[in-house]
């Protein structure tokens, strides 16, 4: 009784707001019920901290410098797969994006169909597609690029469509008033306005695709991933450390680059 009268939340009844409590209870309840599914075992978790440290200790080895040339090759392959898949996706996504934008689509049925197609494409993770494509066209970077490009079109088409949907309507009307045709309105009034958004999106996706490309090798779809798993399976920590470092470096570099490009697009072309 006393505690209740001394402490209270700043709400009319002194209790925390109901939606918040409900959401919190829902999440905590779900976690409570699924704890056994996830096999959460705190004792085991704490007990394995030592193992984790021991594992980290393995990395204190002399890196296998002999492996450097191959590492370089594989990293390059990873980057190339990323760039190629993203480029293909851009070319395919631009028209699909126009068709999937409510204000640019030729017909509402086309809009719905393309939207659903896009969400199907991005529903499955790259790795699942890669698994399927590997069994269809064989090992190598090709199935990886196909899987990456496919999923990327799903995301990029949607983002492009959304960027087109928020363009200012006045210039569109202006161009239309001068007698521009269907395609001209889209090319000269809508796309230029959506362009900065596009570039930002492409940078995000490039970033994402690079991360995804590093693991496609897991199912034999090219890139550094295969070496990564092999090193892991064979306990070649002297290679593993180099691979992890290389991934970290490349991803971080692209991350910084895209951050800078995006802030430059957002704040104008200064600095």
């Amino acid at each position: 009784m006393t505690t209740i009268s001394i402490w209270r939340w700043p709400t009319p009844n002194g209790l925390p707001p109901l939606p918040l409590v409900a959401a919190l209870c829902a999440v905590l309840g779900a976690m409570w019920f699924t704890a056994s599914l996830v096999e959460v075992d705190w004792v085991h978790l704490v007990g394995s901290l030592g193992k984790m440290a021991a594992f980290a200790g393995h990395f204190l080895v002399r890196p296998d410098w002999e492996y450097l040339p191959q590492l370089f090759d594989k990293m390059l392959e990873t980057i190339e797969m990323t760039v190629l898949a993203t480029a293909i996706a851009i070319v395919v996504s631009l028209p699909l994006g126009v068709l999937a934008a409510r204000n640019a689509t030729p017909h509402i049925v086309v809009y719905r169909v393309v939207r659903d197609l896009l969400s199907l494409m991005r529903a499955l993770p790259e790795l699942v597609w890669a698994l399927v494509f590997v069994s269809a066209v064989g090992l190598g970077p090709l199935p990886g690029v196909m899987a990456l490009a496919l999923v990327t079109v799903g995301f990029m088409g949607k983002f492009f469509a959304e960027a087109i949907e928020v363009v200012d309507h006045k210039p569109v009307e202006g161009v239309r008033a001068h007698g521009a045709g269907w395609l001209q309105v889209r090319l000269f009034a809508m796309l230029p306005q959506a362009l900065p958004d596009f570039v930002g999106t492409v940078m995000y996706i490039l970033d994402h695709n690079l991360r995804a490309a590093t693991i496609l090798g897991l199912v034999g779809a090219g890139g550094i991933g295969y070496d990564l798993v092999m090193a892991m399976r064979l306990f070649q920590y002297d290679r593993l450390i180099l691979i992890a470092l290389a991934i970290y470096l490349v991803v971080t570099l692209l991350d910084r680059l895209s951050d800078q490009l995006r802030s430059r697009i957002i704040h104008g072309a200064r600095a």
Partner: peptide
């Protein structure tokens, strides 16, 4: 944390904790 792919991290944690969803 962002730069390490989650599958790589999963490999590491599987090595330390054993197989399973945790």
């Amino acid at each position: 944390m962002r730069a390490m792919p989650d599958l790589l991290l999963a490999l590491v944690f599987v090595a330390a904790l054993g197989l399973g969803p945790l």
